[in-house]
C-alpha cells in the first residue's frame, strides 16, 4: 500500500523530468557552473568539491556493485594507485597534471584488470575478500616502497593543475570546475555504459549469473571489464584528489575506512543509479559537517543511520525502479519494425 502511494508521486515527477530534460539540465548545469561566483566561503567550496569527488568515486564503484553486483572492499586501493601514480609523475618526472592523471587512471585500470583475473576461479563473497586484501596490500606497498612512494611520509608539494597558463586552485574555483567536469563526464560515461549492450549484459549477470551463462554470456570477461572500468574511474578520482589535498598525500589517506566510505555512498544513494551517487555523497559528506555540534556522538549516529537505512530502505535513498516505459535499444526497435513490416506483407 505504502509503495503504491510513493509510486503515484514518482510517475508524474519522472515524466515531468523526462519531458523537460533539456531545459532542466541546462538550468541545473548553468547554476552549478555559476556556483563559484556566488561568493561561497572556502569551507563551503571545499565541501562541494568533496561531494562531487565522492559522487565520482561512487560512480566508479557503482559500475562494479550496481551493474554487475560485485561488492568491492578495496576501492581505496585503486584510489591510492591513481593518486600516487599521478603525484609521482608530476613531482619527480615533471609531467603535467592532465597526462599524469590519465596515466594514473590507466595504471589503476591495469591493476583492476589483474585484480579481475581471480574471477576466473572465485566468485561472490570470496572475490569480495580478495578486494579487501588488495586494499591492504596496496597500503603495504605504499608504506614499504620508500624509494618511490616515500613511505609513511607521503609525497609533498604536488603541483596544481594548469590550463593554458591558468593555475587551478580552490579559491579561484578551478578545483570546483575541474571536479564538476570530471564527474559530469563520468556520469555521462556511466549512463552510456548502462544503456549499452555491455551494460545490459552486466545487469543480466547481476540478476542471475547462472542464467546469463546459459544465455551464452562469457561472464568472467564482462566482470573483468567492469573491474577495469571501475578502477579507471576511481584512479582518475584519485589523481584529482592528489592535487586538491594541499599538494600532499600519504598512505593514511587511503586506509580501509575510505573503501567503506565509498561503499556507503553507493549503498546510501541507491545502487545502480547515477542520481543516487550525487545524493549519497552529499548526504555522507555533509553529515559530519552539519552535525559538528554532536562532537564524537556523530560517528555513533552515523553508524546508527547506516543500520536504520538498511532496515527500512535497503535499496538506497534514491534507489527506485523507473516508472517510465522501457526504452528499447535502437537495434531492437529496428528489428521489431521489420518484423511488423513482414507481418503486414503476409
Amino acid at each position: 500500500m505504502k509503495e503504491k502511494k510513493s509510486l503515484n508521486l514518482l510517475a508524474p515527477f519522472e515524466s515531468f523530468v523526462d519531458k523537460f530534460k533539456v531545459p532542466l539540465s541546462i538550468l541545473v548545469g548553468a547554476f552549478l557552473i555559476a556556483v563559484p561566483f556566488l561568493g561561497a566561503s572556502r569551507v563551503a567550496m571545499r565541501n562541494l568539491v568533496m561531494i562531487f569527488l565522492y559522487a565520482m568515486l561512487g560512480m566508479g564503484l557503482n559500475v562494479l556493485l550496481g551493474y554487475v553486483g560485485q561488492v568491492s572492499l578495496g576501492h581505496a586501493g585503486f584510489y591510492a594507485i591513481g593518486a600516487y601514480t599521478s603525484a609521482i609523475l608530476t613531482t619527480t618526472y615533471g609531467w603535467s597534471f592532465w597526462t599524469g592523471a590519465i596515466a594514473g587512471a590507466c595504471v589503476a585500470a591495469l591493476i583492476g584488470f589483474l585484480l579481475g583475473l581471480p574471477t576466473l576461479r572465485l566468485s561472490g563473497t570470496y572475490l569480495t575478500i580478495v578486494t579487501l586484501g588488495f586494499g591492504e596490500i596496496v597500503l603495504m606497498v605504499l608504506r614499504q616502497w620508500e624509494s618511490v612512494t616515500n613511505g609513511n611520509y607521503g609525497i609533498r608539494s604536488i603541483p596544481v593543475p594548469e590550463l593554458f597558463g591558468w593555475e587551478l586552485t580552490l579559491s579561484n574555483g578551478g578545483f570546483y570546475w575541474l571536479i564538476l567536469f570530471l564527474s559530469t563526464v563520468t556520469a555521462i560515461a556511466c549512463y552510456t555504459i548502462k544503456n549499452s549492450n555491455a551494460g545490459r549484459t552486466l545487469i543480466a549477470i547481476k540478476e542471475d549469473e547462472l542464467a546469463a551463462t546459459m544465455m551464452g554470456i562469457k561472464t568472467t570477461r564482462y566482470k573483468i571489464l567492469a573491474f577495469v572500468v571501475s578502477a579507471f574511474i576511481t584512479g582518475l578520482a584519485g589523481a584529482y584528489y592528489s592535487v586538491i589535498n594541499n599538494g600532499y598525500i600519504e598512505p593514511n589517506n587511503f586506509v580501509f575506512n575510505y573503501s567503506i566510505q565509498i561503499l556507503s555512498v553507493v549503498i546510501v544513494g541507491g545502487m545502480g543509479t547515477i542520481r543516487g551517487m550525487y545524493f549519497g555523497s552529499a548526504l555522507l559528506m555533509m553529515f559530519p559537517q552539519v552535525f559538528r555540534f554532536l562532537n564524537q556522538w556523530r560517528f555513533v549516529i552515523y553508524g546508527l543511520l547506516l543500520v536504520l537505512m538498511m532496515q527500512f530502505r535497503p535499496q538506497g535513498a534514491l534507489g527506485w525502479q523507473s516508472t517510465l516505459p522501457y526504452k528499447l535499444p535502437r537495434r531492437a526497435k529496428k528489428a521489431l519494425a521489420e518484423r511488423e513490416k513482414a507481418k503486414t506483407v503476409q
Partner: peptide, 30 residues
Amino acid sequence: PLRKKQSIPIASLITTVGVSFIIQNGLALE
C-alpha cells in the same frame, strides 16, 4: 529483521559495518 524481510545480502554487510561504527565510536566517547 533483515533475514525476515529477505533483504539483499549487502544490506546485512553494511549493517555490520554500521554496528561496528556504533560500538567502536561508542567506546571512544568522552
